[in-house]
Amino acid sequence: KKVIATKVLGTVKWFNVRNGYGFINRNDTKEDVFVHQTAIKKNNPRKYLRSVGDGETVEFDVVEGEKGAEAANVTGPGGVPVQGSKYAADR
C-alpha cells in the first residue's frame, strides 16, 4: 500500500472492539482515517484483542487503502504500546 504520511498523531473518534475497526481523527488535517485492528502494531500487552480506546491519542502512518486513507503501524505517541479500549478483555 502506498504511504501518504508517516508519524501522524491523531485522536481515536471511536473503535468497535467486536467488529475490529474504527476511525482516528488526524491532528494535522482533521481528516478521519479508517483504522482496522490488524493495523495496530503495539497492542496493550495486558489486553487479549488488539484495539484502541475512544479518545486515545495514537501515532500512525497513513496509507492508501481500497476506500481511501487508512491507518497503518498504529502505536501510542513515540512508539509506545496503545492503551486499548476499555471494552477489550484483559488477559
Rank of each mutant, 00 (worst) to 15 (best):
K67M: 09
P45A: 13
K47S: 08
T57R: 11
V74Q: 00
K67G: 10
K1R: 05
Y87G: 07
V80H: 12
G76W: 06
G68Y: 05
G65K: 06
K67W: 05
R26W: 06
I40T: 01
V3W: 05
L49E: 04
T6F: 15
D61V: 04
N16T: 03
K86G: 10
V58Q: 00
V63Y: 15
K47I: 05
D28N: 02
G78I: 05
K47C: 07
N73A: 09
E59R: 07
G53Y: 07
I40M: 03
G22A: 00
V63P: 00
D32V: 05
A5Q: 12
K47W: 06
G78D: 10
P45W: 08
F15G: 01
F15I: 01
F34S: 02
V17L: 09
G68F: 04
T11G: 03
D90E: 13
A71M: 00
G78Q: 13
G76F: 11
V8H: 02
A71C: 12
E56Y: 03
A5P: 05
E66F: 14
G53Q: 12
W14T: 03
F23P: 00
T6L: 15
K42S: 13
G76N: 06
N25G: 06
Q83K: 13
D90I: 12
I24M: 02
D28P: 00
N73H: 11
K86S: 12
F34V: 03
G68P: 01
L9N: 11
W14Q: 03
E64C: 12
D28F: 01
K2Y: 09
G68S: 08
A5Y: 15
V12K: 00
K7R: 10
K1L: 04
F15A: 01
A88G: 14
R18Y: 07
P77K: 13
I24T: 00
W14P: 01
K42F: 10
R26L: 06
G76P: 04
A39V: 07
R46L: 13
A72F: 14
Y87R: 11
R26D: 02
V63H: 11
G65D: 09
W14I: 02
K86Y: 09
N73I: 02
P45F: 10
F23G: 01
A89P: 15
L49S: 05
E64Q: 15
I4F: 14
K67Y: 08
T75D: 02
R46A: 12
K7G: 11
A71L: 00
D54W: 10
R46N: 15
V58F: 01
G68A: 06
R18S: 15
E31S: 11
V35G: 00
L49W: 08
L49C: 08
G22H: 01
P45I: 12
A72R: 11
K13N: 09
T29M: 03
R91E: 09
V35A: 04
D61G: 02
V62F: 02
N43I: 10
Q83W: 08
E56S: 04
A69K: 15
T6S: 13
D32A: 07
R91C: 14
N43W: 09
R18M: 14
D90W: 10
K30P: 03
T6H: 11
G78P: 04
E70F: 13
I40Q: 01
H36W: 03
F15Q: 01
G78N: 14
N16S: 08
E64H: 13
E59Q: 11
T29C: 07
Q83S: 10
K42I: 13
N19C: 15
G78L: 12
K2R: 07
L49Y: 09
E64G: 10
G65A: 10
V3F: 15
K86I: 11
Q83A: 10
E31M: 09
N27S: 14
P81D: 12
T57F: 13
T29I: 09
V82L: 08
T6Y: 15
Y87I: 08
Q37A: 11
A72D: 15
R26M: 08
R18H: 11
G20S: 06
G20R: 15
V33N: 01
R91L: 12
K7I: 02
G22K: 01
G79C: 08
G10L: 00
S85M: 05
I24P: 00
Y21N: 02
A88S: 11
A72L: 10
H36F: 05
K86E: 08
S51P: 05
K47H: 08
N25Y: 11
I4Y: 08
I24K: 01
A72K: 14
D54M: 14
Y48V: 10
G22D: 02
S85N: 13
G55R: 10
N16Q: 03
V12W: 04
I4E: 06
P45Q: 10
K47P: 05
V17H: 09
Q37R: 13
G84K: 04
A5C: 15
G10V: 00
Y21K: 02
K13P: 00
E31P: 01
D32T: 07
L49F: 06
G53F: 06
G53R: 12
Q37S: 12
T6N: 14
I40E: 01
V52E: 02
E56R: 03
A5G: 11
Y87L: 09
A69Q: 13
G20Y: 01
V80A: 09
K1G: 05
P45G: 12
N25A: 12
E56G: 04
T29N: 15
T11C: 11
K7M: 08
Q37T: 10
G78S: 13
D32N: 05
D61I: 04
G78M: 14
E59A: 08
A39S: 10
E66N: 13
E66D: 15
E59P: 00
I40G: 01
P81C: 10
K42N: 10
G53E: 14
V74C: 07
N25D: 03
